[in-house]
């Protein structure tokens, strides 16, 4: 289904960021993407802060996927 395709994509993206497979993304992981993605370090920080909704410094798969859902479908779709 569409839903599982999105989930699959989300998982792939999460793994690109979580290189070591820790199960969460840190600010440092995000900074490492600086060489691989066109975003500046500042923009990547911004992305991290936006996705890290509880601001604990760890980006879980749930936080990441809800951010991705907002990007795909607009805010308020996933509760």
């Amino acid at each position: 289904s569409d839903c599982s395709a999105v989930l699959e994509k989300t998982r792939e993206f999460f793994q690109i960021c979580d290189i070591e497979g820790k199960g969460f993304i840190t600010r440092r992981d995000m900074q490492r993407l600086n060489g691989e993605l066109p975003q500046s370090a500042e923009e990547l920080e911004n992305v991290f802060d936006t996705l890290d909704t509880d601001a604990n410094g760890y980006l879980t798969f749930e936080e990441f996927s809800s951010g991705f859902s907002e990007f795909m479908f607009g805010p308020g779709v996933v509760s």
């Binding site: 993605l37 992305v47 936006t50 990007f71």
Partner: peptide, 29 residues
């Protein structure tokens, strides 16, 4: 409303980020 502006700016940054991941994944710039 500055808060709305901030949210919109963040949305743009998020969109760029996820678009970049999409490009990276598919290899299409």
């Amino acid at each position: 409303d500055p808060n709305m502006k901030g949210a919109a700016a963040n949305e743009g940054v998020l969109a760029n980020f996820f678009n970049s991941l999409l490009s990276k994944k598919t290899g299409v710039p």
